[in-house]
């Protein structure tokens, strides 16, 4: 049987509630797979603290943080790597925590928004977001802030971006560089203009 992409989608849409379940895999077979307990232990350093987790292997890093560790500062906006709300810093680099499984992070050092600062002791980036009103509803904010902290690190480390005029010259701390690098973090409230001002202020202070 040949299944074209088109017939596949039509068949999938009509016969199954979920398009994600291919019709040629029987539901029983999937159920049998699901029945097998797939748990694993993983040791992750979260905000400087060692956490030992015993997890369903399907658990994303995002859900491990939010549900297992109840660190809900990291947000789930899309769960598909499209919005950036779940951005955390893993071993010094920002990642979408929804696109990576927790068990892949044995020994990783993860910094979340809770690890950057607290209401009593704000990180300079958090303080700058407040000062410049770089947020409204606040849901994308932890991701924006984690991304912003990492972006300044990337520019400092000389990593070029699409907006860099040269791949070999060190990138500059200018608005267009920051805007390009921050474009994976969507803010539907539209605080972009203020966010760039907040990041630029922190960048200038640390330059």
């Amino acid at each position: 049987m040949t299944i074209s992409r088109r017939t596949f989608l039509i068949v999938g849409a009509v016969t199954a509630a979920s398009v994600a379940l291919p019709p040629f895999i029987s539901a029983q077979a999937s159920a049998a797979n699901a029945a097998r307990p797939n748990k694993a232990t993983v040791k992750i350093w979260i905000n400087g603290e060692q956490r030992d987790l015993d997890l369903d292997t399907r658990t994303t890093l995002l859900d491990a943080l939010r549900e297992s560790l109840q660190l809900t500062g990291t947000k789930k906006g899309c769960d598909h790597g499209q919005c950036g709300a779940c951005t955390v810093i893993a071993n010094g680099r920002r990642i979408n925590s929804c696109l990576t499984l927790a068990v892949m992070h044995e020994g990783s050092k993860i910094t979340t928004i809770e690890g950057l600062g607290t209401p009593q002791k704000l990180h300079p980036m958090q303080a700058a977001f407040i000062k410049h009103d770089g947020y409204q509803c606040g849901y994308c904010t932890p991701g924006q802030i984690c991304s912003a902290v990492a972006v300044l690190g990337e520019i400092r480390d000389g990593i070029p971006s699409h907006a860099s005029p040269s791949l070999t010259e060190p990138p500059k701390l200018i608005a267009s560089e920051i805007q390009e690098r921050m474009s994976g973090n969507i803010c539907r409230c539209g605080a972009y203009s203020n966010i760039i001002e907040a990041i630029s202020e922190v960048a200038e202070a640390s330059a």
Partner: peptide, 22 residues
């Protein structure tokens, strides 16, 4: 005036609908 709930939102402490664990 900066938002009075700003310190909660920027540190991830403001609880949204899915986050009332306790």
């Amino acid at each position: 005036t900066t938002r009075i709930e700003g310190p909660l939102k920027t540190t991830g402490q403001a609880p949204y609908a899915y986050e009332h664990h306790t």
